[in-house]
Amino acid sequence: MIIPSLGIVLARPLCEWTPQHWLLKLGWQQTRLQKGVYMDGHECDDHHMVHFEGSELLHVDPQLAPGKWKVIAIFHDEWHIIHVSGFINVEYGWLVHCDEPGNIVADAQEIIYPGANGDAWWNTEQLLKQVKHAIQIFKAAHPHCIALFIFDQSSAHASLPPDALKAFEMNKSNGGKQQKQHDTVIPDTNPTVEHHGKPQKMCLPNGQPKVKCSPICPWENEDCCMACLLSKQDDFTDQPSRLKALIKDAGHECIFLPKFHCELNPIEMASIFYNTFEEAKQCAVQQLDACPTEVIHRFINCSWQFMSAYRMGLTGKAAEWAVKKQKGNCQVSHSAMMSIEAVLHVAS
């Protein structure tokens, strides 16, 4: 039974009314359990990562197979008003490089003061420059390790290179002011089998951009024109962003969190409090630096727990309940998941 499996001894058994009302309080309805947020974690093997277990945050090193490198997750986030773009290292707190006495000699954090009379507004170019610097800091601080950079969803993070394949930005005629797009290889999912794996030039021999296939439609829909069909080809849909390409080319990994799920990014839990712009400029760094590494580890464990709960299919109040019950671990236990599923099975 569920209650004994959780180590709870009751003076008298529960009636059917109690678990039904408990499920309603958690936000569940009498329906089939559906999958919630999905985050592709195939590049995020937690067996290669350090964990912090229990209420005392016991440091647990990964058991690496021969030839495998340790993976260190690096979460990124940005604060506005004054613009702070920072990274936290799941093992050591803020991403920095220290000398032997422990003095910080390089910091990945960037702070600007954008506005009419201030710095230029933060954009993709500034982010890429910062990430290059962050990669250098990581390499110096953690040789023989792989960084897993974790970002929120934003237009800057998804920005494609200037020569990206964009079917709906090709002109109706060759040449012109349209952007030149890079050559590609026809994917194996193309309907014409004999073309699989063949190179596809996106410019004419004279260097002019090629024309878009016709007929032409002025908007994107399912299958009205060749441009729409072309845009659905794997080489058009599976293009890495400039940010991801930069990180992958440096030998590291990069993933993006689902939209509207700040609980998956522990750096979101670090707050800055201020009343005026001038006060913000003075206290931002001080407040961020004052956040203890132990607190950062607890924030990170909380995010790992939510990720684990979502992978198991929990959503809403049920995911929050599971995370609260697993404060000492970095993952939601299967026993907790089985308990919830068992109650749902009885209720349905």
Rank of each mutant, 00 (worst) to 15 (best):
P4M: 07
L6Y: 01
I8S: 02
V9H: 07
R12T: 09
E16Q: 13
Q20T: 15
L23W: 12
G27N: 00
Q34C: 10
E43H: 08
E53I: 08
G54L: 05
S55L: 15
L57N: 02
V60L: 04
V60R: 11
P66H: 01
K70N: 04
F87E: 08
I88A: 09
E91H: 07
G93K: 02
I104N: 01
A106I: 11
A108I: 04
A108V: 06
I111F: 03
G118N: 07
E125G: 02
K129N: 13
K132W: 02
H133V: 13
A134Y: 08
A134I: 05
A134K: 08
A134W: 03
I137H: 00
F138Q: 04
F138N: 02
K139S: 13
S155W: 08
L160Q: 11
P161G: 06
D163S: 10
A167E: 11
N171H: 11
S173H: 14
G175I: 00
T184A: 14
P187L: 11
E194K: 07
Q200N: 11
C203Q: 06
N206Y: 02
G207F: 04
G207E: 00
P209A: 01
V211C: 15
K212G: 14
C213M: 10
P215S: 06
I216L: 14
C217W: 03
P218V: 02
W219T: 14
C224W: 11
C224Q: 13
C225Q: 01
A227Q: 14
C228W: 03
Q233C: 03
F236T: 04
R242H: 07
N265Y: 00
F277W: 09
E279L: 01
Q286N: 11
Q286D: 04
C291M: 15
Q305F: 09
Y310D: 00
M312R: 14
K317P: 09
A319H: 00
W321S: 14
A322Q: 01
A322K: 11
N329L: 04
L344E: 11
S348K: 15
